[in-house]
Nucleic acid binder design. Structure first.
Length: 662
DNA sequence: AAGACGGAGGTTTTT
DNA sequence: CCTCCGTCTT
C-alpha cells in the first residue's frame, strides 16, 4: 500500500487515488503517465476492487504487457483484462459472437491487412470491368473508414473523385462482407465493430458487461477512433468509472481514423469528469522542453498545456545543414561515435526519420562505419512470406472455411504445383455445390471417390486431397506438437529451398525455426490452449518487439514508432520542407481546414520526436536529397524557425568539419 | 501456368 | 530510380 502511493507528486496522487466517477488525465510527454495508470490500478485493487472488475485497454501489446507487469510488481496480481482494444474485443467475441447475428461463429479467423487486400482483389475481379484507379488499398481505406466512423461508404469517401463510383464501391464492399462471412473471418475493424454491435443488439448483453467491468481505463485516448469511442461509451455503466489518459499534442494517427476530438470533448461527454493535468516532465532538460513547447504552441485548438521540469539545464539543441543525405548520415555516425567515446552506449542514441525510405542511407553509413544498429519497423516477423505460408496451413486446419488461407496454400506449396486458378475454381465450385467448406470438401473421401481417371491433373488433385486429409487429421493439441508434426509431414523446411531457391535461404530457415520455438513457448505458457488460441495470439498479441533494450546498437526508427519511448540522445534526420512536414500534408490549394489539420499533425510528430530526448537533440537537414533517382533541392523545415534561436547552435557540415553558422 | 513487359506511383502503420 | 501491379505472351 505504501509503495503504491510513494514518490508521487500532488497531481499524480490526485489521479491515482480518484475512486469513483469519470476522470481524464492529460499527461504531457515524460510526465509519468504509465506510473499513474499502473499505480491507480494497484490502488483500486488495494482498496478492495476485484481485479476481474477492471478493464484496461491500450493500443499496443507492449503497453499492455508493461502495465500488467508493473501492476503485478505492486500488488502481486493483475487484472486479466489488461489488453489491447483488439485483443480484448477478440476475447469478448470468442465468448459471445454466437449470440450476435453476424454470420460468424466462435472459431472465426482474424484477417490482417494483407488477407483483407487479397479478398478485396477477388471482389474487384468478380465485379468485372472496373474503372482504373479503384485499387484494393483505396477500397480498404474506404471500408475501414466506414466501419471506424460507423458511417456510410458515401460519407467515408471524402474524396469527391470517387463519389461517382459509389454504386460500384458499394457493390464490392457488400461482396467483401459476404465473403468474409463465408470464410468465417473478421478484419481488424470488425473486432471492434462486432463487439459494439454485440453490446447494442443482443438483449441483456450490455448489462452483463456492465456488471462484469466496473472500472474502465483507456490509455492513449487521443488516438481512439469513433468506433473505439463508441465501444467505451457502450461499456461504461451508470457508475461511469471511466478513466482515460492521453495527450492531444501527441495525436499522430488521425490518418488511421484517430480523432483527438474524443479527448478534447471528454469533459462534455462526462460533465462531472475530474480533470487532472500532469505537466511536470521528468525526462528532458529545460532546453529541450522549451523548444518543444515553442513548437507545439503554433498549433491552434489545443488544450493549453505547458510542460516544465526541475531537471538541470542541458546542452543547446544542435541544428546541422549538410550537403546531401549521405553527408547527413555521415555526420550522425560521427556524432554517435563521439558520444560512445565519451562513455555512452550505442543504444543511448536514436535516429528518427519521417519516412522509411530515409533509413537506407543511414543504415549504409552505420554499416560502413562498423557501428552496430537496430532498425525498427519494416517487415514484421509474422508478415514474412514463409511464416505466412506456414500459418496458412494451421489456419485451414482450424477454420476450413478460410478460403484466403486455402488459396495461399494452393498457390505456394509444391504439392500444388501444376494446379492453377482453374483447378482452384473448379474445386471451390464443387465445394459450394456440396455445401461444404472448401478444405473439408477437398480432403474428403467423397471428393477422392469422385476423381476419375489417371490423368496428370487428377493424380495431382488426389495427392493434394490426401495431403489435406493428413493435415486435418493431425491432432490439434498440444499446440507445439501439432505445429512440429505439420512441419514434419509437409517437409516444410526442405520445401523452402524448392520453392524460392537459394535467396536468403538461411534467414528463411531461421525464421521457420524461430516460429517453431514460438509455438513451443506459447504451449509452455498456455498448456491448455488450442491452435485457434495460438493463431489469435499470432494475429493480435505476439508482436515481436524488435526493439531490444538489451542489445547494444544505435536505434533507427520512424517518428511514429518513437512514441512512448525515450533516449538520452535523439537525432531527427531530414527536418526539411516536404519531408517533415511531409509534402502530402502541405500542398494542395483549397480544402484549407484539412490542410491545416494535416500540417498540425506533422508538427505534433516533430513534437513527439523532440520530447523523446532526455539530454540532447540533434536536428539535421540537407541541401540536396536523393529521391526518385536524383538529387532534389531541399529547404529547411518551417518547424525549425519555431524553435527560439537562443536554444540552438547551428552548424554547416563541410569536408567532415562543423562550421558554426550565425 | 509461369515468365516477360509496361506503366504508374512513391507517408506514417499501434491492431 | 526502383518496385509493385496488371496484362500479355508463350
Amino acid at each position: 500500500m505504501d509503495s503504491i502511493l510513494e514518490n508521487l507528486t500532488v497531481p499524480q496522487l490526485e489521479a491515482v487515488t480518484h475512486r469513483d466517477g469519470p476522470m481524464i488525465v492529460i499527461a504531457g510527454a515524460g510526465s509519468g503517465k504509465t506510473r499513474v495508470v499502473t499505480r491507480r490500478i494497484a490502488w483500486l485493487i488495494s482498496q478492495g476492487v476485484w481485479p476481474s472488475q477492471i478493464l484496461a485497454m491500450t493500443f499496443t501489446n507492449k503497453a499492455a504487457r508493461e502495465m500488467r507487469e508493473r501492476v503485478e510488481a505492486l500488488v502481486g496480481q493483475a487484472p486479466r483484462s489488461i489488453g489491447t482494444f483488439h485483443g480484448c474485443c477478440a476475447r469478448f467475441l470468442r465468448r459471445d459472437i454466437d449470440k450476435l447475428d453476424c454470420g460468424r461463429n466462435h472459431d472465426f479467423t482474424i484477417y490482417d491487412d494483407e488477407e483483407q487486400k487479397t479478398l478485396l482483389k477477388q471482389c474487384i475481379k468478380a465485379a468485372g470491368k472496373i474503372p482504373r484507379g479503384l485499387t484494393p488499398s483505396l477500397l480498404s481505406t474506404a471500408i475501414s473508414n466506414s466501419k471506424n466512423g460507423r458511417k456510410s461508404l458515401a460519407a467515408a469517401l471524402q474524396d469527391d473523385d470517387y463519389l461517382d463510383l459509389l454504386p460500384v464501391i458499394e457493390k464490392i464492399a457488400e461482396d467483401y462482407e459476404k465473403r468474409l462471412q463465408e470464410c468465417n473471418a473478421v478484419d481488424f475493424d470488425d473486432l471492434l465493430l462486432l463487439t459494439v454491435r454485440l453490446l447494442e443488439e443482443v438483449p441483456g448483453m450490455a448489462d452483463i458487461y456492465h456488471n462484469r467491468f466496473r472500472y474502465l481505463l483507456v490509455d492513449e485516448y487521443q488516438d481512439t477512433n469513433h468506433l473505439q469511442y463508441q465501444l467505451i461509451m457502450r461499456l461504461a455503466n451508470e457508475e461511469q468509472n471511466v478513466h482515460v489518459t492521453g495527450d492531444p499534442d501527441q495525436s499522430i494517427y488521425s490518418w488511421r481514423g484517430a480523432d483527438y476530438h474524443n479527448i478534447m470533448s471528454f469533459t462534455q461527454d462526462f460533465p462531472n469528469a475530474k480533470l487532472v493535468k500532469l505537466e511536470q516532465n521528468y525526462r528532458s532538460t529545460p532546453t529541450i522542453l522549451n523548444a518543444a513547447n515553442s513548437v507545439i504552441e503554433n498549433n491552434s485548438r489545443r488544450i493549453p498545456k505547458e510542460l516544465f521540469t526541475e531537471n538541470a539545464d542541458g546542452r543547446l539543441i544542435t541544428e546541422l545543414l549538410a550537403h546531401t543525405d549521405r553527408h547527413e548520415a555521415e555526420w550522425i555516425v560521427r556524432k554517435t561515435r563521439r558520444l560512445r567515446q565519451n562513455g555512452h552506449s550505442w543504444r543511448d542514441c536514436a535516429v528518427f526519420y519521417r519516412t522509411n525510405a530515409q533509413s537506407r542511407v543511414l543504415e549504409e553509413a552505420f554499416v560502413k562505419a562498423g557501428i552496430p544498429y537496430q532498425l525498427l519497423g519494416g517487415l514484421r516477423f509474422y508478415e514474412r512470406k514463409e511464416i505466412k505460408d506456414f500459418l496458412a496451413l494451421l489456419r485451414i486446419k482450424v477454420n476450413p472455411s478460410d478460403a484466403v488461407a486455402f488459396e495461399r496454400v494452393f498457390a505456394n506449396f509444391p504439392i500444388c504445383e501444376g494446379l492453377g486458378g482453374k483447378a482452384l475454381a473448379e474445386l471451390q465450385n464443387a465445394a459450394a455445390l456440396a455445401h461444404q467448406p472448401v478444405v473439408t470438401y477437398a480432403a474428403s473421401e467423397a471428393y477422392r471417390a469422385g476423381l476419375k481417371g489417371r490423368s496428370q491433373k487428377t493424380e495431382r488433385l488426389r495427392r493434394l486431397s490426401n495431403w489435406l486429409r493428413q493435415l486435418l487429421e493431425t491432432p490439434a493439441t498440444p499446440v507445439a506438437t501439432a505445429v512440429q508434426e505439420i512441419e514434419r509431414f509437409t517437409d516444410f523446411m526442405r520445401q523452402l529451398e524448392l520453392q524460392h531457391g537459394q535467396d536468403n535461404l538461411l534467414e528463411r530457415r531461421e525464421n521457420v525455426q524461430s516460429f517453431l520455438e514460438r509455438a513451443q513457448n506459447f504451449t509452455n505458457d498456455n498448456p491448455e490452449a488450442d491452435l485457434a488460441a495460438f493463431l489469435e495470439d499470432v494475429a493480435l498479441v505476439a508482436d515481436v518487439d524488435s526493439h531490444d533494450p538489451q542489445a547494444d546498437g544505435v536505434v533507427l526508427m520512424t517518428l511514429h514508432s518513437s512514441k512512448g519511448l525515450e533516449f538520452p540522445y535523439v537525432f531527427i534526420a531530414g527536418v526539411e520542407e516536404g519531408v517533415l512536414p511531409h509534402a502530402r500534408a502541405t500542398a494542395r490549394p483549397g480544402a484549407l481546414d484539412e490542410d491545416l489539420d494535416q500540417l498540425e499533425e506533422e508538427r505534433r510528430l516533430f513534437y513527439v520526436g523532440i520530447t523523446r530526448a532526455r539530454r540532447a537533440v540533434y536536428l539535421s537537414h540537407v541541401a540536396l536529397r536523393f529521391q526518385y533517382g536524383g538529387y532534389k533541392p531541399s529547404s529547411p523545415s518551417r518547424f525549425l524557425e519555431e524553435i527560439p534561436p537562443g536554444l540552438v547552435r547551428r552548424f554547416l557540415y563541410r569536408n567532415g568539419d562543423e562550421i558554426p553558422m550565425r
